[in-house]
């Protein structure tokens, strides 16, 4: 039963990242291999802000209520969201926008994202070294919930916050005019721009939204486990598996599929062994591509 809880927590983090992947995929139309690096950068940027705050104003480090972290962490989350979004927009301006302007093929964008991921990941390793880092060293006692499951307050916060975020993003996409423009661009770029939608601002919105969710996912993973330069690379395959399983373009699908991937990983760890965990996403991916390439909630793509 405890495996279920762990799977659920990991799954929500995968889901948050997969929402970003699915949005860039459906609106910018390419598989972004650099998305995992936004997760790592988000976590490291928050770590730096939180450490700086903690050094300047030690009062911010005292834990809030039952949680393991002080007010420096929520402030760091806000700061990291802004910085990670800026980073994503910067990479787009420097690389992807130029390739789009040249009319490059989709696969060139994929390849460029591959090169960008390599540079971003190793830059992190250069700045922060490959040693794992932590937000706090405080230990948390997990509290019994029901049916023998236990969870720490931090873990429950992560699950609750993820649920709220998915709801917010889903409402944003389905109910707001910005969301309508995004969906219009994902249907047909030419028609959307003919009907007066500013495609550039839609693209900016996609990057900001994707980077913000990636940063939050990275910070959550950092709070619960640890922060490493390769955390984004390790997440990349689960992110793609979840985005494709959920159906490209579907936000609730990405979250649900993220949880499925997380639970499947937890199950594998219990039944087969932790060393095979990373293979789960691949098996799911191949299964989906063989049986239902459009995913659970996706439309068949040309």
């Amino acid at each position: 039963m405890q495996g279920l809880m762990d799977g659920l927590i990991n799954g929500t983090i995968i889901g948050l990242g997969a929402i970003g992947v699915t949005l860039t995929y459906s609106i910018l139309r390419f598989a972004n291999f650099a998305h995992g690096e936004l997760v790592s950068w988000g976590a490291y940027l928050a770590l730096s802000i939180s450490a700086a705050l903690g050094a300047l104003l030690p009062g911010l480090g005292t834990p809030i209520g039952p949680f393991s972290f002080g007010w420096s962490v929520p402030i760091a989350i806000a700061g990291s969201i802004i910085l990670t979004s800026t980073l994503a927009l910067g990479v787009d301006w420097l690389l992807f926008a130029r390739l789009r302007a040249k009319g490059s093929a989709v696969i060139i964008l994929v390849m460029a994202s591959f090169g960008a991921a390599l540079a971003m990941r190793n830059l992190l390793e250069f700045i922060y070294t490959s040693q794992p880092a932590y937000f706090t060293t405080a230990l948390q006692i997990s509290k019994p919930l029901f049916a023998g499951m236990r969870a720490t307050p931090d873990q429950l916060l992560v699950i609750g916050l993820s649920g709220v975020l998915v709801l917010v993003v889903h409402l944003l996409l389905t109910r707001s005019s910005a969301g309508r423009s995004m969906r219009a661009v994902s249907e047909n770029v030419q028609l959307a721009s003919l009907s007066g939608i500013d495609v550039r601002s839609v693209i900016r919105m996609v990057w900001i939204l994707g980077a913000a969710l990636a940063a939050i996912g990275g910070i959550m993973s950092g709070l619960l486990v640890q922060i490493r330069p390769t955390m984004g690379l390790d997440l990349l395959l689960p992110l793609f598996a979840a985005a494709i399983l959920g159906g490209i373009g579907s936000v609730p699908g990405a979250m649900l599929a993220g949880i499925i991937v997380g639970l499947a990983e937890a199950l594998t760890v219990q039944m087969i062994g932790a060393e095979w965990r990373a293979a789960v996403s691949f098996v799911i991916l191949i299964g989906v591509l063989l049986m239902r390439p459009q995913g659970l909630f996706g439309k068949a793509m040309a």
Partner: peptide
């Protein structure tokens, strides 16, 4: 050295992107 060799890989990533942009 381990740290510096990650700069080597940054360089390869940047080179790949630069070639894609400038001389595909």
């Amino acid at each position: 050295q381990a740290r510096a060799s990650s700069l080597q890989i940054v360089m390869i990533g940047v080179a790949l992107c630069a070639v894609l942009l400038m001389r595909p």
